[in-house]
Amino acid sequence: MRNWLKKREFVMLMMLVVISLGISLITPAFLTPSNLLSIVMNNIILAIMAMGMTLVVVTSGIDVSVGSQLGFAAIFVGLVALLPTANIFIVLAVGLVCGVLLGIFNGILIAGAEIPAIVVTVGTMNVFRGSLLLYTNGKWVTSLPAWYTSMYNSSVLGVPIPIIIFAVVVAVTYYLIQYTRLGRSVYALGGNPVAASRVGINTDKVLLFVFAYMGALTGIASILYGAQLATIDPNAGTSFELTVISAVVIGGASALGGSGSLLGTCIGVLILGVLQNGMILMRVEPYWQDVVMGLILIIAVSVDVLNNRKKEAQKKTIDVAKAIKGGVSA
């Protein structure tokens, strides 16, 4: 497992390094500690949600409702933060619970009713956004209290709070997928759903968990969202789901399920973040961004497919060759 992962991620890492080097040759402002920190800080929300999306994609699912979930939870968090009795812990709890509930809603429809994930989440994307807009009547949540908005830029022991939160998310997610039965079941389900139920994995439960976890991470992201921007648009997060999915895909998770790693996804997020930042620094007109991002995504997935195909072809000949030699290879 380690070997293969290293290979895939190594290529992505090289790509990131090459892009970064290219940008830093053109603009010296890129390779400065403050700029690098700002790249990280600007993409924390994306990164947190991409962690959850990685698990969703590993099960060969998809969640296009996360943009709506983000807006929904952010507005609720904002409204709660405006209450006089609110404090940071209440806000955290509200964001988390709100996200989890939205995720569970998706999960029940996908796992329980066996409606394909893309269909369910296209539906709930409209349901979440629609009910949010109806409730707020399109009004923004503004004048958030300072104790909330200052969170994004405060530090503990010199480490910015968003980075601490992200680190916790990564640690928890890594622990989950590496050291728990539930986490390994996610990968098992993605690798071979039929076999998964045969070895006693409750596939419905695993799917429900994956979408609930996606919701939980979106909830956490929504807390940071309000804190970062200080005002919350009920349209917040519109089409953000596509950026999240792009990062995960560039990071190497296969749409066919079964593969995808946290490290890969982090690199995917960084590639997107570095490109965006670099283009701004290089004063590339903003409308070129989509062209470059789109191309990177197209190239990444095409190269992946071609590589896999080559590997498969090689393996096939080896397999047959071995069989022809007639020896037990074990």
Binding site: M1, R184, Y187, A188, G191, N192, A196, R198, I201, G258
Partner: peptide, 21 residues
Amino acid sequence: VIYQDISLFPNLTIAENICIG
């Protein structure tokens, strides 16, 4: 049971495939 189609997990390690469940 050992199924005809093997029915294991290509993306997991051999150890996991043996011990899962």
